[in-house]
Amino acid sequence: METFLQQMVNGLTLGAVYALIALGYTMVYGIIQLINFAHGEIFAAGGYIGVITLSFLQSRGVLEAHPTLGLVLAFALAMVYCAFLAVALERMAYRPLRDASRLSLLLSALGMSIFFSNGMMLCQGVYDKAYPIQLYSTGQFTVGGAVVSYIQVYIFVGALILMIGLNLFVNRTRLGKAMRATAQDKVMSALLGINANRTITITFVIGSVLAAAAGVMVGLYYGSVRFDMGFIPGIKAFAAAVLGGIGNLTGAVLGGMIIGMVEVFAAGYLASEYKDVFAFIILILVLYFRPTGIMGEQVDDTRV
């Protein structure tokens, strides 16, 4: 029972992270039907900016004095950085291909993914970069036998705040509604005066901001980041997006939670060396038996 509770706590934490990444995939897919392979790399870049910021603050002695300020700054800078990175990515690799075949677009995305991950490797080296140690060992408490670290609480609450913010943006604001309108019908949206390119850029920016936050969270949770850390979580988060029904925001969050849980429980009770396989198996099963996902957004029958 205690391990079960413990797995629940760990699964929720991991799930929250996957959910944040999955939101970016699902939004971008919803608006331009592209699997943005470089999304995982943006997540990794967020993790790097986090560690760079924190190390800098630590070296200047600021982190010791104001750890909260340091954390806020790390998140803020990572999000801003990834927003700019996303705009550059969209401009360079995706916008010129707006009218090209989907295969070209997909290959362009794959090229950028390889480019970014190798770029980060060349910039920051092959080895793990450690987050300042005092941050991720800030203490813990016990609930019914399960150990919950403060970091886990921060991650979960942070993710929740971001998701609520996203929900409000998408459903309440003029730009958020315009984003949904563009995803639903590009020609009609243009006839209403909505600039598709601008809306698509906004979509990329929002998805990347969420991924950046997830990157810093993962850095804090595991204590380090690495240039290729975006690859596997990227695929898992995409699996989560598909599981929830691609294009569906609530679905992405649910899917992320499920994938996180499944991974943690499978690693705990079945075989930990195969933990990365389960997400793929879920992805394949979902695509095979219920390609619209659990939340079932309508899917058009087009191919690459």
């Binding site: 003029r174 509604k177 949904r180 309108a181 639903q184 019908d185 009609m188 949206s189 209403l192």
Partner: peptide, 12 residues
Amino acid sequence: LPRLSVADNLEM
């Protein structure tokens, strides 16, 4: 816009 409410369609 099928998945926007009537009011949101008008707002757009």
